[in-house]
Amino acid sequence: MAVPISYYVILSALVFITGMVGVLIRRNIIIILLSVELMLNATNINFVAFSNYFHNVAGQVFVFFALTVAAAEVAVGLAIIIALYRSKSSINVDEFHLMKW
């Protein structure tokens, strides 16, 4: 009846891989930020699954904090994207190599 905890871990790992591959292979900065959201959601799934498994609410509290950090990250990240688009009128990551060695 109950779903084993390993299923949740596997689901979380699959979503995390998808987000990581998205960060690495896409050139559009907005899609890269969306992939970061995917990875954060994968960890949140893990937190809630283990919170339910151990009957401990602390996992859900940490999901709350992760959500806060995600919101802050999105606000700053999108502001950076707007500033970048203003200076180069493109959001292709290959064109931004000012701080690359």
């Binding site: 690495l24 292979i25 050139r27 907005i30 930020l33 995600a70 999105v74 606000a75 292709n92």
Partner: peptide
């Protein structure tokens, strides 16, 4: 969060030319 993303996507008015990295 998602509304913020959609605002920025529409604000930037992207032409899609991206290939994979």
């Amino acid at each position: 969060i998602l509304v913020l993303y959609l605002f920025v996507v529409m604000l930037l008015n992207l032409h899609r030319e991206d290939r994979y990295h």
